[in-house]
Amino acid sequence: MSLTVPEKGWYKAPEGAEKLWIGLALVWCMVMSVMMPYWHFRGKQNSRGEAYSVEPAAFMERTTTFVESGTVGDWNGIPIVEPPPGGEAYLAARMWSWYPALKLRKGETYRLHLSALDLNHGFSLQPLNMNFQVLPGYDHVLTITPTSTGEFTIVCNEFCGIGHDKMIGKIFVE
């Protein structure tokens, strides 16, 4: 195998429109470098929640206790649970469902505990732009205050297997 040496003059410095596009790209990089910390601290884009280590079986036990203490209805065979205002709500992700469905009150604050029982899942609350990774072994606690009423759909946005497309949950806000 022989190596060929590139011809002299093969590289040409940017000129004309290339310089403009490189300049715009550099300016955009600087703008984004400034905006990322701004969005983090002022844009309320990131979770200010807590995370704790938890065994999946222990989290499921807490979730089952939560369901038994506050079931108020049924949605597609899944219990709808209404926690007391200011209380704790539990939501477990497992192939291929969210358990249970939640009923919350507008303007009330809740501590929402999220955990996966089997593998990585993604919590995406639609139509809001709220996304979190839900991992087994971690109890991720979010303090939430619903600001509008309606039905909100939870979808898994982390591919979790053949039933991933059917992994849908609900939060009802009155």
Rank of each mutant, 00 (worst) to 15 (best):
G122D: 06
E82A: 14
I22Y: 14
H121M: 12
T149P: 02
C160E: 10
G169Q: 04
T145F: 11
K19C: 02
L102N: 08
I80M: 01
V67A: 01
S47A: 10
S2M: 14
T153C: 02
V5G: 08
N46Y: 15
G49V: 09
V31Q: 09
F172C: 11
A58H: 09
T143A: 05
G9V: 05
V34L: 09
M95D: 14
A58E: 11
R42A: 05
A92L: 09
L142G: 03
E68C: 10
G73T: 12
E174G: 13
Q126P: 12
A51T: 14
G70E: 07
P56N: 02
T65Q: 12
G107C: 03
Y52E: 07
V173Q: 13
T149S: 14
T63K: 02
L119F: 03
E7S: 04
N46F: 15
E108M: 12
Y38V: 14
I78K: 00
N131W: 08
M130W: 13
S115G: 12
G86R: 13
S124Q: 06
I80F: 03
A17G: 00
G107I: 10
G163T: 10
S47C: 05
W28E: 13
E55W: 04
W96Y: 13
V27K: 09
N131K: 08
D139M: 00
V34R: 07
N129R: 12
L125M: 10
N157K: 04
P146N: 07
E108D: 13
A57G: 12
R62K: 15
N120I: 01
R62W: 11
W21L: 12
T64V: 02
M1C: 13
F59A: 06
E88A: 14
L20W: 08
L135A: 02
I144H: 00
